[in-house]
Design a protein around this nucleic acid. Structure first.
Length: 98
DNA sequence: ATGCCGGCTCAGC
DNA sequence: GGCTGAGCCGGCA
């Protein structure tokens, strides 16, 4: 399979995440049949600014926001969707999208 | 074509 | 629960 096709599949999966829900890089990787979770992060990093993809709904397996430049932005977007954070900055497990 | 850098994860302390 | 090291594979310079 072509590598670019994998990114498309990743994008497709991410697009399926319903508002108010989040999922992890690992989950996306599994669903998109990506070789490794890193590819998901890589795919996200290459997203254009004007992308409508809900990248903010993808978090780390620890249920915290991944460490990247837009983490602040991501946190706000999630809050806007009604996602609550624990004192430790983690997302409740019940918010995870299967 | 080669090398270095990632929006990670898991196992082990 | 938190830190560290290693593995992993695709982009991009």
């Amino acid at each position: 399979m072509a590598a670019s096709a994998q990114r498309e599949r990743i994008y497709t999966v991410v697009a399926q995440i319903p508002p108010g829900r989040v999922t992890t890089y690992g989950r996306v990787a599994r669903l998109a049949d990506a070789p490794t979770p890193r590819m998901v992060g890589s795919a996200m990093r290459h997203l254009p600014e004007d992308s409508t993809l809900p990248w903010h709904r993808v978090i780390a397996a620890s249920r915290r926001l991944a460490d990247h430049g837009g983490a602040e932005r991501q946190r706000e977007r999630l809050l806007a969707e009604g996602i609550s954070f624990t004192a430790a900055g983690k997302v409740p497990e019940s918010r995870l999208w299967p």
